[in-house]
Structure formats: C-alpha cells, structure tokens
Design a protein around this nucleic acid. Structure first.
Length: 260
DNA sequence: ATGGCAGGCTATGCCTGA
C-alpha cells in the first residue's frame, strides 16, 4: 500500500480560547491526527460537536483549570489509555490509542518541573521514569509507535535561544536531558532531526516582551517515532504561523508526514 | 539585572506555565 499520513501536535493553552485557531488549523493543514495539550477544561466542556463537524473523531482526558489532553483524528481510535501504568496521578497528561489496529499513538503533556529545587521537578523526573518503563514494553508490543506532545525538555543547546541564560534551569537540566535521551534510546527518533533544518527553529516562545518577534524560543514539542515508522517519515516542520495570530497559544504546532 | 504575558478561577489577586 502507499498511504500518506499527517500527524500534528499542539499545546493550545486553553481549548476554550483557542478553538477557532484549532478549527482553522484542521481546515488549512488537514492532519489525519492532531494531539492537543493543555486543553484546560473538564470533559463536560469539550467542544465535541464543533470538532466532529470538521470531520474528526475526538478522544479527550481533561480536568479543571490545568493540563488536559485530546486526540482529534480522521480514523477512530481503539484501546484508549489515560494514565501511565502503575502511576497514580490525578493530573491529566496522557492519552494513548491505536488507529487501524497497528498505529499506536501516545499524546503526552510532560510536567513542567517549575525549578530544580521544587517538588514539581522531582514529580517530573519520576513521571518520566514511569513513562520510560511503559515505553520499554509498548515498543515491543507496537512496532509502529508515535509519542508526541509537549515534552517540556529542550534536548540540546541548539534547541534554546540563549543557552547561557538557561544554564542550570528547568527544561535544560542534565537529568531531564538524560531522561529524554534514555527514552529515545529505547528505539525512538525525533522526527524533526531526521531532516536538515535551519538554525533557531523553536516551538514555544514566552508571551512576554515580544519574545516571538525576537525569536526568543525553545524547541520542546516533538513527534517521536519508532524505527519502523521513522524510516517512512518524509517531513517534520514547525508551523509558526498560528503563533502570530491574535490571541495565540504560546506554542506552535509541529507537523510530521509519513509515507506508509 | 529585573521582569515582562496569558488563562483560569469565584478571585477582585493568586497560581501556573517554561
């Protein structure tokens, strides 16, 4: 067969506020799968009708005020999970499903970590340990595995606008970077880095002080693919256009295409 | 050097984000 599939991820920082941007993105980019993070709403508030009217199935795992993840897709997903196995966590950061009985997709909103001396940093590293253990099993069960979302880790200095200013901070700390490298070593590939990319391409910019206009950003949103998928990946790009809209999310969507 | 913006909440400032 020769099937093209387009997969995207976007931290929308409130789906209530960003729904018009998301509907425009579905129309303009027409992804087969769109993973959303930080929808910031309880499940009873999810805009099911609007998204179904755009031609997409919906899965979501939300909570009040914070976090929350969703998957919008052309195909219907099966075998849904909303937690990392063995981790009892009220925070809604995980949404996994299987499409066409073979493509396993895990949408992740990795904890931010606040600062290196905080409990939230320990929570982040611990959360990542449970993720690692789960993926070490999942990648055996599902050769076609995609992990995508907001990882809240900048893998290398080239993913940071000003590495010197970020040194010693959360997002770039050596233990976080090591945790991400260990995850990739299970057999996952950062699809963005499969291709030659211009320097200083980021997926997040602070709202403050014209950070986007000055391209003071970080690359922390990824589409990771298992080897059997990454070899069929034909592109990965960051779509910065939505970051320039009125009332934007602070993150830009990342889009990857596969020729399966 | 510092702090700056945005979203949600039941608040009329505080917490969180990265």
């Amino acid at each position: 067969m020769n099937k093209k599939i387009k997969i995207a991820t976007w931290n929308v920082n409130s789906l209530r506020v960003r729904l018009p941007h998301v509907l425009d993105f579905l129309k303009n980019t027409a992804p087969d799968i769109l993973a959303l993070q930080e929808i910031k709403m309880t499940d009873d508030k999810f805009p099911i009708e609007e998204i179904q009217a755009a031609g997409y199935h919906v899965l979501f795992s939300g909570q009040k005020t914070y976090n929350g993840v969703a998957l919008l897709s052309r195909m219907k997903g099966n075998d849904v999970i909303t937690d990392l196995p063995h981790l009892d966590d009220p925070q809604r950061r995980v949404l996994g499903t299987t499409y066409d009985n073979k493509l396993r997709v895990l949408n992740l909103y990795v904890p931010n970590g606040a600062s290196l001396d905080s409990d939230k940093y320990q929570y982040k590293l611990n959360w990542f340990k449970y993720l690692h253990n789960y993926i070490s099993e999942s990648i055996q069960e599902f050769p076609h595995l995609i992990l995508l979302g907001d990882f809240n880790i900048a893998p290398e200095d080239r993913d940071v606008y000003n590495p010197a200013a970020w040194k010693g901070k959360v997002i770039v700390s050596p233990p976080e970077r090591a945790a991400l490298r260990d995850l990739l070593s299970l057999g996952l590939h950062d699809t963005f880095r499969l291709f030659e990319q211009p320097p200083a391409l980021f997926s997040w910019w602070h709202y403050r002080r014209e950070a986007f206009a000055r391209n003071m950003g970080l690359r922390i949103d990824f589409i990771l693919a298992s080897s059997s998928l990454s070899s069929h990946c034909t592109s990965c790009m960051i779509d910065i256009a939505p970051r320039g809209l009125e009332r934007p999310s602070d993150h830009a969507p990342v889009v990857a295409t596969f020729d399966l």
